[in-house]
């Protein structure tokens, strides 16, 4: 069989609401279970196993929640923009729902990155906040998420709203490289990249491992939380369809 045809078929099958609802329901407990195990290990590795930093003392331990949250704030935005593009081009209902479900989760991770960064900044920089490139562009990301949510709720027709939101989400992508490279392009209080350098990361393995484990845990958490929101939104939009009626029929 033609491989392209089978991929297309799989894609359409996965994008069908009842199929996605069923499969995501099967996966959800495993995703959240693995996420909980990785979180437990990441906390143990970060708070107990990892040694004290020679420069920042114990305060650096905020990195294990701050950096994964900041990475996720950008990753979720990219997922939102890519599903937005898919929604615009192919008018897939599932893509629209995934896109809009990303917004509150992404906003919460952005808030967390800003808040933990601020708490970290106080003892290290002696200030809660500076208007430098990294912090300001991350704050702009939070406002982009708010803008997406506000725009979606301002337009009554869900499908028109999704198209408008998709355009806003795609335009906002320009902010992502600005956040990422801000510490290299401008002089800033924020420290430079420690992990995503092409040569060797300037962080010891005993600190890098819990950081990466936490990053994977955050990613799994995002997928799990996204599935929860998408499933609810699918039910809401398809509540008059046969599959939802059959699903909720009293046994």
């Amino acid at each position: 069989m033609n491989i392209f045809a089978s991929i297309t078929r799989l894609y359409h099958q996965f994008a069908s609401p009842p199929y996605f609802y069923r499969i995501s329901g099967l996966w959800l407990p495993y995703i959240m279970g693995l996420c909980a195990i990785l979180f437990a290990y990441g906390l143990y590795g970060g708070l107990i196993l990892a040694p004290t930093d020679y420069e920042q003392g114990e305060a650096y331990r905020i990195i294990f929640v701050h950096v994964p949250a900041a990475w996720m704030s950008m990753f979720v935005y990219m997922v939102m923009a890519v599903t937005g593009a898919i929604a615009l081009v192919w008018r897939l209902k599932l893509a629209e729902i995934v896109m809009i479900s990303c917004a509150p989760i992404g906003a919460s991770f952005t808030f967390l990155a800003l808040a933990t960064g601020s708490i970290w900044g106080k003892p290290m920089w002696n200030t809660w906040w500076v208007w430098d490139a990294r912090l300001t562009s991350e704050l702009l990301l939070l406002f982009l998420y708010f803008g997406v949510m506000a725009l979606y709720n301002a337009i009554e027709d869900r499908r028109t709203a999704a198209r408008a939101v998709a355009i806003l989400a795609i335009v906002g992508v320009v902010n992502i490289p600005i956040i990422h490279y801000s510490v290299e392009w401008w002089n800033t209080l924020h420290q430079g990249p420690t992990v995503t350098k092409f040569d060797k990361p300037s962080i010891h393995l005993s600190m890098l491992i819990p950081l990466l484990v936490m990053a994977v845990a955050f990613k799994l958490f995002f997928i799990g939380s996204l599935f929860m929101r998408v499933r609810t939104e699918l039910l809401a939009r398809e509540q008059k369809s046969k599959w939802v009626t059959a699903l909720l029929e009293p046994k």
Partner: peptide
Amino acid sequence: YNLYIWASYGLTFLVLAWNL
């Protein structure tokens, strides 16, 4: 740094719980 670290981890817990 107790207060700073536990505030960060506490906030993380709250944000994750909110998302569930």
